[in-house]
Design a protein around this nucleic acid. Structure first.
Lengths: 233, 233
DNA sequence: TATTTTTTTTAGCTTTGTCTAAAAATATTT
DNA sequence: AAATATTTTTAGACAAAGCTAAAAAAAATA
């Protein structure tokens, strides 16, 4: 595993994330993601292809090679471990961790990251609920479902929140929703796609379509009867 | 306080350290310290002068301006807090922390560093005994004395070790000397400048001139009688 | 003091990563 | 299918930070 520049790492990471959704990534897409220009992307793609980190044919888009994916997972591991550290140990709020981790993730020292992981107690997910790859690059692929795709009557556990702004954090805190919260979908209103949901025995409340679109849950589980079994706190 | 590149930060830090010894710093001196070429130093000096971080007249050497010193202290604060974190929390050994901190120190986010400081319990010195500047850039200037400058009969506390190699660490661990150790100088041998020293009531032992040159102590204090008072552990 | 040596600076080139503008390839419409 | 629009690549520039080789200044020595 060689050493890559901050810029190369940012490209690799961005392609990895875009791939998850699209399979193959286009020049414009990536330029947009990285807030750079298409010409710069083409230049970098040539470089990364030469380093065998991705498959790329001019005009045909690109995707990471298996080596490229490995590198991406290392960077994502660093990023998410730092996020966890910032939230858990330094008491940063949830919406602040991403930006700082963007910088810390480029300090590439395997021993540092593995010892950090150990210090943190080998956390499985970062503060947004995204899984943290282990020292071998293995990552839990949790098939997360968007709250908007759930039918009324179903109960699921919040696993992930995709937006990272302080605005969504404010709203989630107000509604007492966080990673691990058990939500029961009571009803969907066709007029505005708002959802009526319940947490445990508390009174039901409404969440907007915009909010629901950013909340992801793990596939509904067979849960112990309400109020029974182990608490999830 | 603007934002400086990794390279600029390395130059500023190096000048700060060289200044402590020499007052004014020369091109060759700095090139040597940074393992770069004199021509590169001249280029950077022009840049840093333009940014008002240092005083520089061609051919006359340079020294940091007050603004430059402030920046240097911020960088040194970052470096030493990370060193403390690595040693104390991640259990890195003493000789490993410097290299990793060289990279972490360039992540410039005031909140990160201030929260790290708080998390660590506001440590006063790093693992080598060097003082850590506080959030306002204030630093304890401890007039440290080299072991070689002490007269027999004097007892002093080890405050600092200048060499950072694993070799010196191995030797110090073997002799059970670390920051905070109370050493009594028993005798100096003129033949090889070796010193006979004692720790507490343990039998005296010898340390070489080479080792003594790298050990610094705080000015001798009025100590409570042996075995009395608070322990220094 | 004149000469030689050392130090420092200048000039010009290289690499990395970016950009703009123009050209080429691909996609979309009519 | 031809024309038009969009996307992507190429060509050429630029800034940062480094380098080498040559010139200039300062320091040391004869």
């Amino acid at each position: 595993m060689l050493n890559y520049s901050t810029s190369e790492e940012n490209y690799i990471k961005a392609i990895f994330h875009l791939q998850r959704q699209d399979g193959i990534v286009s020049t414009n897409e990536l330029a947009n993601e990285l807030k750079t220009k298409p010409a710069s992307v083409t230049d970098m793609m040539k470089k990364l292809k030469a380093k065998k980190l991705l498959h790329y044919q001019p005009y045909k888009g690109f995707r990471l090679s298996s080596e490229g994916s490995k590198v991406a997972l290392v960077i994502i591991r660093r990023h998410r471990l730092w996020e966890y550290f910032l939230a858990e140990k330094l008491k940063f709020t949830w919406d602040e961790v991403h930006e700082v981790a963007e910088h810390l993730e480029h300090v590439s020292n395997k021993k540092l990251i593995d010892k950090l992981d150990e210090f943190l107690g080998f956390p499985r997910v970062d503060p947004h609920g995204d899984p943290i790859p282990d020292a071998n690059g293995r990552i839990e692929i949790s098939k997360k479902t968007c709250l908007t795709d759930l039918s009324p009557g179903i109960t699921a556990i919040v696993s992930n929140v995709s937006d990272q702004s302080s605005e969504i954090l404010e709203l989630l805190e107000h509604k007492k929703i966080s990673i691990g919260t058990k939500l029961e979908i009571k009803k969907r209103f066709d007029f505005d796609q708002s959802l009526e949901v319940k947490i445990g025995r508390q009174p039901a409340f409404t969440i907007s379509q915009q909010l629901a679109e950013n909340i992801f849950v793990t596939a509904p589980l067979l849960l112990p009867a309400e109020g029974e079994g182990k608490r999830n706190k």
